[in-house]
Design a protein around this nucleic acid. Structure first.
Lengths: 215, 215
DNA sequence: TAGATTGTTAATCGATTAACAATC
DNA sequence: TAGATTGTTAATCGATTAACAATC
C-alpha cells in the first residue's frame, strides 16, 4: 500500500515538530485563559522564541482549518487539533518494568495522566519490592509481566531497569505485542520495525550539564 | 579573546555528539569487561547502530591520541578521555526546586551520583513537604533557596516545579550564580547568555509515544 | 604484503530560515 | 485602503554519510 498522499497529513510532521507540540499546547492554553479566541503563529513564535515560519508549518500540519490573515487561528480549534494529534484524549495503558528508584518515581508521578498515559502496573525481579504498591499501582513479580500484558493488551512499556536487563525485557515486551517502549536504560534497544523506542537519556542530559559546568 | 583554535577541541562537539558520549562510554566499559584493550570505531558503530565515520569523528573530538589503523583505539584511554570530557569525575553539587512527585523521584535516584551529580538539597513551597528528607537529602522551604545556593556556590539547579513557577525560579537561580539548569517544566526559560538550560521534556516524549500508538 | 582501519574531503540529506506574493 | 498575517517556494545551514587516500 502506497502512502504518498493519503489526504491526512499525519506523516508530514517531523520528530522535532511533534516535540514542539506540547509547548504550543501550553501556549494556547495560556492564551485561552486570557480570553483570547484567535492567535497568530507570529505571537506563538515570539512567546516560545521560535521562527514564525516554523510555527506556521507545524500548525499547518496538524490544524484542520487554515489560518486567516490578520487574525490568525482559532484558539479552541487549534487546542483540540493538537490534543487529537498527540492522542492525549484517549487513555493509553502502560506498565513499568523495573521498580527501582527511578521506576517508583515515575509510578508516583501523576502528571502523566494529563497526557493520556495511565500506568496500570509495575514489575520487578526483586522480591523486597514486589507486593507493594506505589500511588495505588501494584508492583508484581517480573514473571507475571507477559501474561499481564497479553491479557490487558498493554500498548506501552516503560523500561526503568538496569541496562544489562533492558534488551531482554524489550524482547519480552515485543512478544506480548507492545507497540511502543519508553526506554530510560542507557542502551540502544533492538526491536522489530513498527515498534517505537523513545529513548529518555538522563545520562545524556547530565553529560550536557556537566560539560557546561566543567567548561 | 578569540577562540578560533585554542588547541583544545572542546568547542568542536555538537550537542548530538555529546549526547552520544554516554553510549560510547557504556560500550567501552563492556569491551573492557571482556578484557579487550583496543577497540575500533567500526565495531562501536556496529554495536550502537551508528555510522562508523560519525563515531570516528566523535572520538577524534574528545580523544587525546589518534587511532591506529587495523587495531583502533586504546580502550582505557578512550574511557578516561570521555569521562574527562563529560566531567564525570569531579562531583558537581545540585539542588532540586519543587519536591512534588517528580522532584522526590529524582531525589531518590542514586544513579546520578555515578555521573558526577550530587544533589545536596531540595526546596519546596508546600510546608507539608518541607522538613522531611528523601534519600537523606533535606527538603527546605523555598525561602532558604537563595542563601543556600550562594553559601554553597551551587552550580546546577534542577527545576521540577509546576510550569507557572518555573521562570521565577530560574530568575532566582540565576541571581544566585547558578550556571546550568535542568528544566523538567514544560516552558522555555529565559536566561542570560552563559547559563545553560537543558530541557527534559517528558511531555514531548509522551507525545511521541501517544502519537505512535494512535497511529 | 594484504587487509582492516584510520582521518579527511566532498556529497547528501533534512530541517530551519528568508523572501515574497496572496488575502482578510 | 493599508497593514498584519498567511502559506509557499527557494536559499541556507548544519549534521550525517559516502568516497578515498594513507597507514599500521
Amino acid at each position: 500500500m502506497d502512502r504518498k498522499n493519503t489526504g491526512d497529513k499525519a506523516d508530514t510532521l517531523t520528530i522535532q515538530a511533534l516535540q514542539r507540540m506540547p509547548y504550543y499546547l501550553h501556549c494556547l492554553e495560556k492564551a485561552k485563559a486570557k480570553g483570547e479566541t484567535t492567535i497568530s503563529a507570529t505571537s506563538i513564535a515570539n512567546e516560545l522564541k521560535l521562527n514564525d515560519v516554523l510555527v506556521r508549518k507545524d500548525i499547518a500540519a496538524v490544524c484542520s482549518t487554515k489560518g486567516k490573515p490578520k487574525s490568525g487561528f482559532p484558539v479552541d480549534e487549534l487546542i483540540s487539533d493538537i490534543e487529537d494529534y498527540m492522542g492525549i484524549n484517549d487513555k493509553k495503558e502502560a506498565i513499568i518494568v523495573g521498580a527501582g528508584s527511578l521506576g517508583r518515581a515515575l509510578l508516583g508521578n501523576r502528571e502523566f495522566e494529563e497526557y493520556g498515559l495511565s500506568i496500570t502496573a509495575a514489575f520487578d525481579i526483586n522480591n523486597d519490592i514486589t507486593g507493594r504498591t506505589v500511588n495505588n499501582i501494584p508492583i508484581f513479580d517480573i514473571s507475571e509481566m507477559e501474561p499481564f500484558c497479553v491479557e490487558h493488551k498493554i500498548p506501552i512499556g516503560i523500561i526503568t531497569a538496569p541496562m544489562e536487563a533492558a534488551q531482554e525485557i524489550a524482547d519480552s515486551l515485543v512478544r506480548c505485542g507492545i507497540r511502543a517502549i519508553w526506554n530510560f536504560a542507557l542502551v540502544r534497544l533492538n526491536v522489530p520495525e513498527g515498534v517505537l523506542v523513545q529513548n529518555e537519556n538522563l545520562a545524556s542530559s547530565l553529560a550536557m550539564l556537566s560539560h557546561h559546568i566543567t567548561k
